[in-house]
Design a protein around this nucleic acid. Sequence first.
DNA 1: GATGAAATCCGAGTCAC
DNA 2: GTGACTCGGATTTCATC
Lengths: 154, 154
Amino acid sequence: MTSELDRIDLKMLRLLQNNGRLSNAELAKLVDVSAATCHRRTQRLFEEGYIKSVRAMVEPQKVDRGALVMVGVVLDRSTPESFGTFEKAVAKLNFVLDCNLVAGDFDYFLKIRVRDMADFNRIHGTQLIALPGVRQTRTFFVMKEVVDNAPLNF
Amino acid sequence: MTSELDRIDLKMLRLLQNNGRLSNAELAKLVDVSAATCHRRTQRLFEEGYIKSVRAMVEPQKVDRGALVMVGVVLDRSTPESFGTFEKAVAKLNFVLDCNLVAGDFDYFLKIRVRDMADFNRIHGTQLIALPGVRQTRTFFVMKEVVDNAPLNF
DNA sequence: GATGAAATCCGAGTCAC
DNA sequence: GTGACTCGGATTTCATC
């Protein structure tokens, strides 16, 4: 059963979001509870799904994925089957970081990371416009990343 | 000095990206090196900036930030000062997860997380259109998150 | 139900090689 | 790069409230 989070749980979540490598002992000191209690509470945050995962944030430039592109997609038809087919296909593309169904001028917005513009153009021509049901795409090259993946505020 | 990554380093990066809680001992087994070697290599990945940080991924719905919104922004003027002022102001808004300067019909794209639509409307009226130099904004409410923050493929 | 103290166990970090 | 050793933290037990 998922019960409420108290002030200590929230503080732990914020601390772990900003530094997932905190040891249990360190975290316990920061939130002023015993190591045993801290351990139990952390377990609960995982078990009850408050923390989905802990992830090392890899620097994209360092692994040759320095180009970020936003792509707006419009589908041919707005049927549930059409959406479903498109979504299944997109989920397999590992260069797609985000894919969101939106209300407005586009059906979907994609956030994509690739090596460079040439790489994107190749992928666009071979994989994006080839996605099922795509009528048109609009590409927005990112010229500067001002804020990238900021921690969640809560 | 930043030298190249070999096959083992890359494998470690991928493993840590998918599970930042892996202990050094576990990681060492997975990449088939001794714990001491694994430890030194991991240190290097941090020191040389391959891993920016390790983050607990908090489930937005669980902390009352279930609404995701993409916002396209157009500025009044396209001067460096105008961009700089806008960017400084945006960086202070803790509900902004991403902010990217793009080429195309908009100047910036923002990715925003809030409690709900009512919350967004309040924020839009009081904080977004009030950002320095904003001529217009276009809001795309996210109706379904198909892929959210997928791990980087490299 | 929750907690913290203590006891055990295991891994991190450091050493020599 | 490996293996060993030491020390500190992770995890469990248990008494207590």
